[in-house]
């Protein structure tokens, strides 16, 4: 296992480094890196940075980008809180139907998002089961407003936080909580100073996944959003609109803008995560 045809030296004594690294790089290139590189190439070389900026720097595009990222942030924050709570209930309590609820959490992954969008619109439309009472009681319209977009994004992002936090809660020793209690900490203090810090890295990972997923979501949102320019028009719809009129360069420009903002956000979340892991003394 010593002679290698390429210059990468095995950084670990574990066998199989060259092979697994090669497979990883090939797969990642074919599925992710090359398509992304083509997108950037087409944008910066084929179309030009100044031309792309001219496409992006318009009120309607800014409004759509702002809406997409704002709605994704709101939905992911909701999922962060609600997902941790749901994971906690699923791990710590026993109740009838627990297995069914546990399985139902994954449904947003399985369902085609267009189906989800149509179902949510039917329920939250002004004449829907939830939409009608909400409109009558609070005077709030859900479907065909930004609130409808939040609901659709909460739906598609729900499993991420639950599924990342669940195994961590399972790993927590009850003794840690008991130790906290015997040392005189109140229940609230145990939660804020013992439990939540342990969950934070996993919860942040789930949050980042949910955010990334909802920023690009198209299928479910277009049915419930109303799609009015400057009001409820999401950035992915602008891309589809460009494609529909064969303006591939314009579509690439908006895609590159979304990619850049998403990458910055995910990088920031990763940095926060590294800090919170260091605080925990974990790897």
């Amino acid at each position: 296992m010593t002679a290698r045809p390429f210059a990468l030296r095995s950084p670990t004594p574990m066998p199989g480094w060259g092979l697994s690294f090669g497979i990883m790089l090939t797969m990642l290139s074919v599925v992710v890196l090359i398509p992304m590189a083509v997108l950037l190439w087409r944008g910066f070389v084929g179309f030009g940075a100044a031309e792309m900026w001219a496409v992006i720097n318009r009120p309607r595009v800014w409004n759509a980008l702002e809406l997409s990222f704002r709605a994704a942030l709101i939905a992911s924050l909701f999922n962060l809180v609600f997902g941790v709570l749901l994971a906690w209930v699923l791990v710590r309590y026993r109740f009838p139907g627990k297995r069914i609820i546990d399985a139902a959490v994954d449904l947003p992954f399985a369902l085609p998002t267009a189906v989800a969008g149509i179902a949510l619109t039917a329920i939250y439309a002004p004449n829907g089961v939830f939409g009608a009472p909400i409109l009558q009681t609070f005077g709030i319209r859900v479907a065909y407003t930004e609130i409808g977009i939040w609901i659709a994004l909460i739906f598609v992002g729900l499993p991420f936080v639950v599924r990342t936090v669940q195994p961590v809660i399972e790993e927590i020793d009850r003794e840690t909580e008991e130790a906290s209690a015997t040392l005189g900490a109140s229940r609230l203090r145990t939660i804020t100073h013992v439990i939540l810090p342990m969950l934070a890295p996993a919860a942040l990972t789930g949050f980042a996944l949910a955010l990334a997923r909802s920023v690009g979501e198209y299928g479910s949102v277009i049915f419930i959003a109303g799609n009015l320019p400057n009001v409820t028009e999401i950035a992915p719809l602008l891309i589809v609109i460009r494609l529909e009129v064969f303006d591939y360069d314009g579509a690439v420009a908006i895609a590159v803008a979304m990619l850049a903002i998403s990458f910055t956000l995910l990088l920031a979340i990763n940095l926060i995560q590294i800090r919170s892991r260091r605080r925990m003394g974990a790897v």
């Binding site: 065909y144 049915f223 109303g226 009015l228 589809v240």
Partner: peptide, 10 residues
């Protein structure tokens, strides 16, 4: 127009 769907059936 309060809702701009993407297609006629929508």
């Amino acid at each position: 127009v309060p809702v701009l769907d993407t297609g006629a059936r929508g």
